[in-house]
């Protein structure tokens, strides 16, 4: 499956809670520049799989490796390489949108952080809301802020859990272009989604999560989602 160097590898991975698997065993290897779509019905275990691939949850069995090293979010090198965006609605109540993004830019030592933040604010249509605190934002604007933070920082592996949720169609399309361009730049992307169009626009291969986990082409996976 991997054409260039393998970035993410999962070997006989079983994910779940308290020892109970939520889906079938999976083995996958994703190379640089590839976008792995992850699809499945509600409750199939997509987000659990994504959290395990991001190292946020321990697998029941099997292992996840990023650049050949075991996934470990407590290691600085892992955090430098992996950016993960989940639907976590947690913000500093007294920091504005701009300050949240500046925090990420400075934490990753981005050159000229203010300018980078302005670019992200512009891309996600948040300029007019840049100086308000999160409680004044709509749910979609908070989602865009999280995505801006996740996509702004450098990462060789990007894990996105249903990023299309709470986004309007125009923003979904822009997000698809952005993901594709990041992959073209060499990033590896794991994209959990329910949006067939986003999948067709970005994915190079797909995992269909169910009692059995299977590999599929984006076209087949998109058809599965559309059928669901």
């Amino acid at each position: 499956m991997s054409s260039r160097g393998t970035v993410l590898e999962a070997e006989r991975l079983v994910v779940g809670y308290a020892g109970a698997p939520v889906c079938g065993e999976m083995s996958v290897a994703v190379g640089a520049g590839e976008v792995l779509g992850v699809v499945g019905f509600n409750g199939a275990g997509k987000s659990t799989a994504a959290r395990t691939l991001a190292g946020r949850q321990l697998p029941i069995s099997g292992e996840v490796k990023v650049h050949g090293l075991l996934a470990n979010p407590d290691a600085v090198a892992f955090r430098r390489e992996v950016s993960a965006v989940f639907d976590e609605d947690l913000f500093f109540p007294s920091l504005t949108v701009r300050e949240h993004l500046l925090l990420v830019a400075r934490g990753h030592s981005l050159p000229d952080p203010e300018e980078q933040v302005e670019e992200e604010l512009s891309f996600f249509g948040l300029q007019e809301r840049a100086d308000v605190v999160p409680e004044s934002l709509s749910s979609g604007q908070r989602r865009r802020t999280l995505l801006a933070a996740g996509l702004m920082r450098p990462a060789s592996l990007l894990i996105l859990d249903e990023p299309e949720q709470r986004l309007d169609p125009v923003m979904r399309e822009a997000l698809g272009r952005r993901v594709r361009s990041l992959a073209d730049g060499g990033a590896t992307v794991v994209l959990v989604t329910h949006d067939p169009q986003l999948l067709l626009d970005t994915a190079t291969s797909c995992l269909v999560i169910d009692d059995e986990v299977t590999l599929a082409t984006p076209e087949v996976a998109a058809a599965i989602i559309a059928g669901a």
């Binding site: 979010p73 430098r80 947690l90 913000f91 500093f92 934490g107």
Partner: peptide, 10 residues
């Protein structure tokens, strides 16, 4: 908020 915004920084 700290766990989301701080702990993910390298």
């Amino acid at each position: 908020p700290e766990s989301t915004w701080w702990l993910s920084l390298p």
